[in-house]
């Protein structure tokens, strides 16, 4: 069997996520979180999906910029696969958020600045996904995808992070006039939620980076195979 490259970040991801899954359910949480009650534990599962998504899409964005400066198959594959996994994380965040909303706000979707921003933002990444599948010429596709990605990532962050923060009213935590979890770090809450939350962000992100790495390597193998086939066809004809 082959060796596993970069094995340490993968082990770290598994350790951190195990810790988060276990300790996130057992840690004492603040009792004054209103209608959230025990569901405040979703801070360790729902929120890291969005944080991780933003980090992974940032990495994809950087790869797209590098690609435009100096085109290479590797950078195109990195950007594409990181974006794909970023979108997957976004859907994880979206569906967990809808389920959480249904059980606390009583509805899976409301016209909140945060939710509207996400709907618009995810549509742009839907456009990215479509471009990747609608242009036959691979070099053209890579170039257009990269340009599109360079434009949509800053817009996406503005829509899902900056605009909700600047809005006047919101029912989503840490957006508009609402508070974030740090507000509940008071004196009588001896166990801080940070001890699970920050490892959760790192662990979940690394876990999805791992999936992106696997997809990237498979993609590169496929491209290599295709090139070899084309090459052998030339020799035969």
């Amino acid at each position: 069997m082959g060796r596993i490259p970069n094995v340490w970040y993968k082990v770290l991801a598994v350790l951190l996520v195990s810790y988060v899954l276990i300790y996130g359910l057992l840690i004492n949480i603040p009792t004054d979180v209103g209608i959230l009650d025990e569901t405040i534990r979703n801070l360790f599962y729902h929120v890291p999906m969005w944080f991780g998504m933003m980090l992974i899409l940032l990495a994809a964005w950087i790869n797209s910029i590098i690609y435009l400066n100096k085109p290479s198959v590797k950078r195109d594959v990195y950007a594409t696969e990181l974006t794909n996994v970023g979108i997957l994380m976004g859907f994880c965040g979206l569906f967990t958020g809808m389920f959480w909303a249904y059980n606390t706000w009583g509805t899976p979707w409301t016209a909140d600045p945060k939710l509207n921003g996400v709907a618009a933002g995810m549509t742009m990444y839907g456009g990215y996904w479509l471009i990747g599948r609608s242009i036959a010429d691979n070099e053209k596709r890579a170039r257009i995808s990269a340009v599109f990605n360079v434009f949509i990532f800053p817009l996406f962050i503005a829509l899902i992070y900056v605009m909700p923060k600047l809005s006047k009213f919101s029912i989503h935590p840490a957006s508009g006039d609402t508070v974030n979890f740090k507000t509940y770090n008071n004196a009588d809450n001896k166990q801080l939620m940070e001890v699970v939350f920050y490892p959760a962000v790192i662990g979940w992100t690394l876990l999805f980076v791992w999936i992106a790495e696997l997809r990237t390597r498979l993609s590169l193998i496929k491209i290599q195979k295709k090139n070899e086939e084309n090459h052998s066809k030339h020799i035969i004809s």
Binding site: M1, I4, L214, R217, I221, K225
Partner: peptide
Amino acid sequence: YLFRLDRKISDLENKN
């Protein structure tokens, strides 16, 4: 499962 999948992909890379 993920670690095993990773190894299988490594094998494919080595073969190529």
